[in-house]
Amino acid sequence: MSKKMQITLTVNGTRHELLAEPRELLIHVLRERLNITGPHIGCETSHCGACTVIMGDRSVKSCTVFAAQADGASITTIEGLGTPDALHPLQEAFREHHGLQCGFCTPGMITRAAQLLKENPDPTEEEVRFGMAGNLCRCTGYQNIVKSVLAAAATINAAKEAAE
């Protein structure tokens, strides 16, 4: 065990100061220390994307980020995307279009999709498939995930237009 260091993380808008070993992985800090259990651990080698969170303005796989590297960062997880009373359009769309089954990949999937739609608000099906390719799902065959993301994009864009 190495000595612990003071780490500051802002997670879903709440600032946390905690002591952690530098080697602790961001996914473990979120899940074990902060009890934010939405992001999951699926492969541990940065292939499956179940642990995806938004760090700053980029999607990252939190199993392959040391908490020490994240020190000072602002992080959004699935828990920070919507509330039960005001779901994120992606959360609505995944339910509406059956974009999930066992639910294990879903937090990472939706969190990645949220960032994708920020980077590319009106993607084609091909762009969704390419942009979501860092997230594995074993249940759905992706067809309804892609449908969900496209539907959410349409909802978000329609809301934007209505607001303008």
Binding site: I41, E79, P84, G103, T106
Partner: peptide, 13 residues
Amino acid sequence: DARFTQGKGNYVD
């Protein structure tokens, strides 16, 4: 889906 899409599933880990 409500719990799974909001990160409120309850898996073993």
